[in-house]
Design a protein around this nucleic acid. Sequence first.
DNA 1: TCCCCCTCTTGACAGTGTCAACCACAGCGA
DNA 2: TCGCTGTGGTTGACACTGTCAAGAGGGGGA
Lengths: 197, 197
Amino acid sequence: MAPATLRETVLKAAVDYIAEHGPDGLSFRQVAVAAGVSHQAPYHHFTDRKGIFAAIAAEGYEMFTQAMLDALARDSAEPAADLLESYVEFALSHRGHFRVMFRPDLCSLADDPELQRVADGSFDVLVDFVRTELGPKASIVDIRARATAMWSLAHGLATLLIDGPLEPKIGPIKNRRALIRAVAQQSGLVSPKSRRR
Amino acid sequence: MAPATLRETVLKAAVDYIAEHGPDGLSFRQVAVAAGVSHQAPYHHFTDRKGIFAAIAAEGYEMFTQAMLDALARDSAEPAADLLESYVEFALSHRGHFRVMFRPDLCSLADDPELQRVADGSFDVLVDFVRTELGPKASIVDIRARATAMWSLAHGLATLLIDGPLEPKIGPIKNRRALIRAVAQQSGLVSPKSRRR
DNA sequence: TCCCCCTCTTGACAGTGTCAACCACAGCGA
DNA sequence: TCGCTGTGGTTGACACTGTCAAGAGGGGGA
């Protein structure tokens, strides 16, 4: 089932290209002619070159939010580790989207309220999780520090796995899931439920 | 003291531009004419557009290694937190270099043995630290997991602070150093020396 | 019927990275 | 003194990019 509209066709082609080659070599015109359409046709669906990246990012944030919510919905014994894993797995299985989402030169949250909204939806999942994890008596400072720590760990692991020199340096990664769990374990960011074992 | 050679002039101008606007809008020609020279002159010092990024990255890795070594040389009670802090502070005070260093589409470690060498120098500081921290009896698996965790945390925090939506989401960061230490504390990646307090 | 909007095409423009040829000039051996 | 070579710079061209402007076609409502 090929995408029906030109908008979907262009979007999919761009995401696929970015997943393989990164966002920077992406040529608007090439995508257009590859879709069998004139070089200017996509401009009726995206205002701008930035517009196409904004659309990709928005689509990405929606899926990202859902992925993290699904992980928490499983309600396992280690929700923090699950959240971390869902963050990293999303990045790896949706490289095309993830590579764009955190590149403000390609899509600026500040310039696009709708994009800001869906992005907030994603980040709120993480911050809300930490808030409920620490309980109502936790101080703002602690929530802030813990949320930042979890977010940094997840984001760093994701970006190092996608683009970074982690694998050539650390060695081949046979079992990615095991590495993610081991990192969660090492970092002490596992959930209180299983902390005192 | 203005840079003497054209090579240095171009390099400095490029780094300054990248620190402010990111690497992607950088125009080879603009840099050249801004240096008061023809659009083709820099090609005698850098083979390629990629060549200029490779030079920036190499310069960055040298400084990066030194910054981390300096932090460890202070030999404080919390070397892990110091290492984390030096990682993040380097990224923030050398955005122009840092933004290029971890962008394999701009400078590929695999394609440039010299760049690979200096990059390895940086990463080895981190991995070696974890190895000595855990002692000679530590298993490969643990070293690997802990090094990955520390690296991910540092890298994630650095990239989120530079380009990411951390500040708009978490709130204004008055004391960056305090946040970094709090994150280190939260993540449980502080050094054994001070772990049992 | 006419008109308007939506989608798309065609043609142009400046700006980009890169290739190729040419120029100036210093250093150097014969 | 001459001629050679290598280095650093210039000029001109090329294909390609994103973007602006104008227009073509056609389907739906008045």
